[in-house]
């Protein structure tokens, strides 16, 4: 699955992950999975507002890419699974996001946005309802990282659908013109809402685009969280060293429909159970668990402990969100105070 696009710049020795790092990846993957399942359950039960785009099958790219970023690095995470894997991997406490998603005053956006996230102290400034919107401010974050001059980088994550936007072209162009410290992670699950990647993009690999900008790129198996993390460490090192942007395409899958409640179609035909079962065989948690068991890093006892901790973390977040007051009061006596900064 792994192939190098720019043989000269894209290839090299694999970054070596420590045992601790390998366990962190597994733990974050399990946590992301628990939060994803929690959101699916809650939105079906009417306990989550707005919409939810389930992440099942596609959680490994975000976890692999974000587990070893620095706190001060800037991150625009992918909307799939509402970026929970990306954000928890970066160290963000997801209870404030769940509170936002349940319309509470304790939410990260004070209950103003339902599904937007905002954790500026972790370099996650926010999001947009327009897919591919992150490509534009990424240029500014990359520029500011470069101006700050202390090795800070920007990680920009997006799906195959978002990468079709013109904003992607403009972002790649300027990031490479200015040699900005940006890592682009394209999480290609082969599907937009219903549309197949091959109907929307003329080549199999989005990473092919990188060549046109003189940008190094690599394709990794997005179901292998370790492979994603290794590729990311290399790309991040490249960016931190001032060598400019880097593109990673992680080939992943989407097991659920685009949004909870939408029909699960490819083009206009329902996906078959066999098709889904086949995708489930490439479950990122199973692949990672098997590898760590083989390497003797995991035991059944540790597996159970990690599960129990993730269950507890989600339960704590739910309790925090549920016990927080609903944000249904808006003081309109001075609107400008709300809309404009002082």
């Amino acid at each position: 699955m792994k192939k190098s696009i720019d043989a000269k710049k894209g290839k090299g020795p694999k970054a070596k992950l420590s045992n601790d790092q390998l366990l962190t990846l597994y733990r974050n993957l399990v946590r992301a999975d628990h939060f994803d399942k929690c959101y699916v359950r809650r939105i079906q039960a009417g306990q989550l507002i707005s919409f939810y785009h389930a992440g099942e099958g596609g959680l490994a790219p975000g976890v692999g890419a974000c587990s070893f970023l620095r706190k001060e690095d800037i991150l625009w995470p992918h909307h799939r699974a509402h970026a929970q894997g990306h954000m928890l991997s970066k160290g963000i406490d997801l209870k404030y996001y769940l509170a936002e998603h349940t319309g509470k005053t304790t939410g990260c956006c004070k209950g103003r946005s339902s599904y937007h996230w905002s954790f500026p102290e972790y370099g996650v400034f926010g999001t947009s309802g327009c897919i591919g919107a992150g490509f534009s401010p990424t240029v500014g974050w990359g520029l500011a990282c470069k101006k700050n001059g202390d090795g800070q980088i920007t990680m920009m994550c997006c799906g195959d659908g978002g990468s079709n936007r013109g904003t992607a072209h403009e972002s790649f162009l300027m990031a490479n013109n200015w040699k900005l410290p940006i890592v682009y992670l394209i999480e290609n699950n082969g599907l937009a809402i219903f549309s197949k990647h091959e109907d929307m993009h003329p080549t199999k690999d989005i990473a092919d685009l990188a060549k046109g900008y003189g940008m190094p790129a690599v394709i990794v198996d997005g179901q292998d969280v370790i492979a994603v993390a290794e590729a990311t460490l290399k790309a991040v090192e490249h960016a931190r060293a001032g060598k400019g942007p880097y593109l990673i395409e992680a080939k992943t899958v989407r097991i659920q429909a685009h949004g909870v409640g939408l029909p699960d179609l490819v083009d206009y035909t329902p996906r078959s159970k066999e098709e889904i079962d086949e995708l489930r065989e490439r479950d990122a948690i199973l692949i990672c668990r098997e590898r760590l068991l083989t390497e003797g890093l995991l035991s059944q006892e540790l597996i159970d402990q990690i599960e129990a901790e993730a269950t507890q973390e989600v339960a704590d977040a739910e309790r925090f969100a549920d016990e927080s007051p609903v944000a249904d009061q808006l003081d309109l006596s001075d609107i400008n105070k709300l809309v404009y900064a002082e």
Binding site: I74, P137, V139, T167, E170, M174
Partner: peptide
């Protein structure tokens, strides 16, 4: 800074940098 004729990234370069104190 001169940019290519890339208005979305041109504004983005300001929007992102402004969030970081520029």
């Amino acid at each position: 800074l001169d940019t290519p004729i890339s208005e979305t990234a041109m504004v983005g370069s300001a929007f992102g940098a402004a969030q970081m104190g520029y």
